[in-house]
Amino acid sequence: MKSLKILVVLTLLLVVSAFAFTQIDSFESGYEVGDVATDFKLKDVSGKYVSLSDFEEAKGFIVVFTCNTCPFAIANEDRILALDKQFKSEGYPVIAINPNNPEVQPGDSFEAMQERALEKGFTFPYLFDEGQEIYPQYGATKTPHVYILQKDQGQLIVKYTGAIDDSARDASTATKHFVQDAVQALLNGEPVTPNSTKAIGCSIKV
């Protein structure tokens, strides 16, 4: 009888472990180029909830996981604003999402987001991933981390993932403008090359 109980416990442990590893694998992989991204509904700094489906006229989106406190994210804020200014009217608006846990990083609280958006004059939605449910779906690991989505027959297809350009800190030294070139290629009906780069920034605070 005792042996049977031990066997049952061991079996349960194996099941739980297998589930945990599956969750970790799913978390680490996230979306790859060509995958279909799901929509979300997150609170904007205005207090309203925003979904990608709200943008009926958009051809796609520049989704940027960013925050208030990371030096890399701060160094890219003007570049994110410039991307929104350049491509919003072309059908590719910026959607910024703060994935950090404010209990771990108090400077990334919702109130701090509101202050930062006002201070910088953000022209795009700045959304709070409350509960940290969206960034794992995408597979974002850094701030900033960009995903370009294109609408295709009612679906959101991932066309690019990675960095904004090849200069994580200083925009003036950038020689390759990955996101800008990727969106322009999509607008021209051309393939995106490269369609994936390594995001450089601070790790997401969980």
Rank of each mutant, 00 (worst) to 15 (best):
I95V: 14
P106W: 07
I95S: 08
E111H: 12
K120A: 12
N98W: 01
P102L: 00
L127G: 12
A117H: 09
P99S: 02
S109N: 05
Y126Q: 11
P106E: 03
P106I: 01
P106M: 04
A112C: 09
Q114V: 06
E103R: 13
P125I: 07
V104W: 13
V104L: 15
E111A: 14
N98C: 11
A112G: 11
F128A: 15
M113S: 04
I97V: 10
F110V: 03
E103N: 15
D129G: 10
A117P: 05
I97T: 04
E119S: 14
P99N: 03
P102Q: 00
Q114N: 08
A117M: 09
M113F: 06
P102C: 01
T123K: 14
L118V: 13
L118I: 12
K120F: 05
Q105G: 11
V104E: 15
L127W: 10
R116E: 07
N101F: 01
F128E: 04
N101L: 08
P106S: 08
F110G: 09
N100R: 00
K120I: 00
Q105N: 15
F128Q: 05
F122L: 11
N101D: 13
M113R: 06
P106N: 00
F124Y: 15
F128C: 12
M113A: 04
F110D: 05
